[in-house]
Amino acid sequence: MPSNNEEIESQLYELRALRNRARKQRANNELEQAKELYSNAIDVAKKLKSNEDVEQIEKIVKKIELDLLLQRVAKIEQNLNQMTWAE
C-alpha cells in the first residue's frame, strides 16, 4: 500500500507512462517489447491495487499474445509455401 499521496502520484505517472510507451511500441508492431512494458504496467497497477487497470491491461496483453501466435502462423505458412518439390 503506497505510504503517501506523493508515492501514489509517482506510481500513477509511471503506470500512465508505461502504458503510453507500450501503446506506441504495439502500434509499431514491436509486440514483444510492448508485452514486456504492459507486464511492467500490470505490476505497477497491482501495487496501486487498481483491479480495473490490471484487468484492462491483461486484456491487452492477451490480445498481443494472440497477435504473436498469428505472426508465428504467418511465418510457418510462408515457409511451407516456399517449399517446392524439385526432381
Partner: peptide
C-alpha cells in the same frame, strides 16, 4: 494438409481474439 491445418488454426486464433 498442413496448409489446411494452418488456415484452421488461424481462424481459431482470430475467433478467440
Amino acid at each position: 494438409n498442413l496448409l489446411e491445418e494452418i488456415k484452421k488454426l488461424r481462424y481459431e486464433i482470430e475467433q478467440l481474439k
